[in-house]
Design a protein around this nucleic acid. Structure first.
Lengths: 243, 243
DNA sequence: CGATTCGTTGACGTCCGTCAAGCTAAGTGG
DNA sequence: CCACTTAGCTTGACGGACGTCAACGAATCG
């Protein structure tokens, strides 16, 4: 059941055919639940399975010497956690859950086999990796040159669009603590609080107890200067990228 | 001749055998020179060749609405510019030279053929892409949580190690303008100046007319908290990653 | 019921951006 | 050879964004 989400995500690459979707369904089987704030993989590990998220929200992160945590990527339903490992050998960062999640396990041997014998699927995985990289570049620009309120608005736009791209449009609301927001944006929790209330004062978001929702997405897009081309969703075959 | 540098870089993946090095030599042929401050590829393009740098220094960048430029990656000798294109369809950023460069052109068809029929080389390219991604993550942490002087020191450490990893150890000095430094670090040129003189006052670097050199690399490593594991050089088969 | 977690608010300091002026070195054209 | 320009470096004054410290409230839970 979770395999559908992964398939929907990879379909956005434009490379998959019907046979590939079937193949994915056969490979993506063993799913399990994992609770919020636990690690899926820890830095330095060399796990034997590759993981994909099918429900909930996880993140790539590093713990810093001063005790703070830096979140470098969000993993939403359909995203792979650690294709790296079969190529790079060890994890240079950790992966943990932000909310309760459902995870799919894929044996490393299956991934190797896939890379060698399923060229279209392999291409789609390469596509997913490159999109992850493009997102990192966009985050880097965001951090370097924008104020924190624009950063946060930009983040909300990205999450919304990535969710709709896998068919989860109802979810233009997310549940994160302000500490998690701060770790993503690289700011202090106190400042995250100030920024969030400023967005609320501008009526760009509404907040009630860790639940942030966006009444008017286009206003948020304009405020943050969000340009979605870096997500490379335009190649989507039948599903559009409409908000 | 430039192909050797690319081969040396990809050898760090640990996947290549003698036959692959020969293959690379046959494919990496047409090189040309390009002067500083010119574009190799511009955002939105869909070029027919894939490019690799064999001499000089280039960068990925985006121009921002306010006229500033954000540099999101450095391309050093041995690095590929745009493997993206054959997968993602169009460039979401531009690539330009910082110094005079030598570039190798590889026809897109050759790359496609390589991905399908040279599994070890394809794996090495995937490795290079994943290392680029790891570097982006490290930069993101740098920007988010460190002061500008630590960021700059960290950058110098990374450049040094990446250069030695392709056999260019003599070069623990780089020639960049302070404006370029500022665009990399996401700070103003005025502040880049202040930070650079502070590093000079601590005797961590010496500066003479755009030429920055590092007398004591280990001091810089300590000052910046540089941990090189994210460059994934430890798998290097015969060439070490010694400073 | 206390204990924990998370959100909220204020005071104050630091890092860094902006504006502005002046400086050097390298080139250009007279 | 000398004005003149241009690109880049240097320096100071000032202000805004953001971090830190601290105290207090609100909600959840054993």
């Amino acid at each position: 059941m979770g395999s559908e989400i992964v398939a929907r995500k990879l379909r956005n690459s434009g490379f998959l055919e019907a046979a590939d979707l079937e193949y994915l369904g056969s490979v993506l089987q063993t799913a399990y639940e994992i609770s919020a704030r636990s690690d899926i993989i820890t830095r330095g590990e060399n796990p034997q399975n590759v993981h994909a998220v099918t429900a909930g929200m996880a993140c790539r992160y590093k713990d810093l010497p001063d005790g703070r945590r830096s979140i470098m990527a969000l993993l939403l339903p359909g995203d792979f956690c650690d294709l790296h490992v079969s190529i790079l050998g060890h994890m240079d960062h950790s992966i943990g859950t932000l909310t309760d999640c459902r995870i799919i396990d894929i044996p490393r041997a299956t991934v190797d086999d896939l890379l060698n014998h399923q060229p279209r699927v392999a291409r789609a995985l390469f596509w997913a990796t490159l999109v992850d990289e493009a997102i990192l570049r966009e985050w880097l620009v965001n951090m370097g040159k924008r104020r924190a309120d624009e950063q946060m608005a930009h983040l909300f736009c990205e999450i919304h669009l990535r969710m709709t791209a896998v068919g989860l449009h109802g979810e233009n609301e997310f549940i994160v603590t302000q500490e998690q927001l701060a770790d993503i944006l690289g700011i202090s929790t106190v400042h995250a609080q100030r920024v969030l209330t400023s967005l609320r004062d501008r009526e760009l978001v509404t907040v009630q107890d860790r639940r942030i929702s966006v009444p008017d997405m286009s206003a948020l897009v304009e405020f943050s200067g969000f340009e979605p081309d870096y997500l490379h969703l335009e190649a989507a075959p039948d599903r559009g990228s409409q908000p």
